[in-house]
Design a protein around this nucleic acid. Structure first.
Lengths: 168, 168
DNA sequence: GGCAATTGTTGTCGTCAACAACATTCTTCC
DNA sequence: GGAAGAATGTTGTTGACGACAACAATTGCC
């Protein structure tokens, strides 16, 4: 139990206005989160929502979402990977990756080349267009990352990356 | 730019095996993430997946998911809130909250009481059964939180909560 | 040669965020 | 006091995403 949640943990509730009147007093912003403030998952979730919104907005002009960006980056750094390898590396289901690649292939950013060594699999490559596009995406993503720094602080961001390095 | 991503940032790609052969060498685990390792969003996303899976598993015996837990906790700490107030406080859309409350009301954990002051709105309360259930949920959630501590370290978890406190 | 495993694909289901539209009720403004 | 606009809860749709299950083609194992 954290020091935060210790006080109000097992107590049922303050029970203000036991009746039912929804006094507009709470509309101000003094709604307590109770045990929620001690939960890492809640903070992480709220943060992830913020960070994804900023990513999507910052890369909105090129219409690239976080998952698409991660797929392009990994393919760009490791040309020739199979879909299975990419899916496993990024924690995406291979069924989901099919649609992602369909979309990216339609946009001429990625191409699937039938492997001659294992004819079940596809070797994934960026197209020439995909390469130049990716460098632009990376520039925008770096800009998004500066937004994160501005939001939580440069040192905090670095510390956070260090804490969560094991999950990448 | 972080020290990590600085090296391979703008370079297009190492271009190993420009042909297409998907050599199984990479299956081992040496697939580089390139710029991805410098992105807080990616790390946060992978972490959130892990933390949610553990939460769902730990509270599996009571069949409570993170969002349901957050709703119950806030209602428990602030009886009489309207749906709008809860939605705004937790960053949930009010349309989504309707289904959440439908489910929780069916399970007799929450009741909607028509407010007499504003007949558009419902005052939300825990049932007696909901109160006792919530204390059990909190106990399980605390257990989940210990799993987080075990995973990333006690100090890191505390530091992370401090960094992200502004998003709650 | 035959059988299990792998790869990509298709499909379904459930969760979740984002909207849009609507009826009821409140608030504001004339 | 009454009309216009806003707020609240509800219903429905869309799209991204994770989890599964089933399938054909291909590979690897025995």
């Amino acid at each position: 139990m954290t020091a935060n949640a210790a006080r109000a943990d097992t107590r049922p509730s303050p029970r203000r206005r036991a009746g039912n009147g929804a006094a507009p007093r709470e509309a101000a912003g003094d709604i307590g989160l109770d045990a929620l403030v001690g939960h890492a998952g809640y903070a992480v979730r709220r943060f992830e929502i913020w960070i994804f919104q900023d990513f999507i907005r910052t890369l909105g002009e090129v219409d690239i979402r976080p998952t698409q960006y991660s797929v392009l980056t990994v393919i760009g750094a490791n040309p020739g990977l199979s879909q299975m390898a990419v899916a496993k590396r990024l924690g995406i289901e291979r069924a989901r990756l099919v649609h992602l690649l369909d979309s990216l292939e339609q946009r001429k950013l990625v191409k699937r080349i039938k492997s001659k060594e294992d004819r079940r699999s596809h070797a994934l490559h960026l197209t020439a267009q995909g390469e130049t596009a990716l460098t632009k995406f990376k520039r925008l993503a770096a800009e998004h990352e500066r937004h994160v720094e501005a939001k939580i602080g440069k040192e905090n961001r670095a510390h956070l990356l260090r804490i969560l390095a094991g999950f990448t």
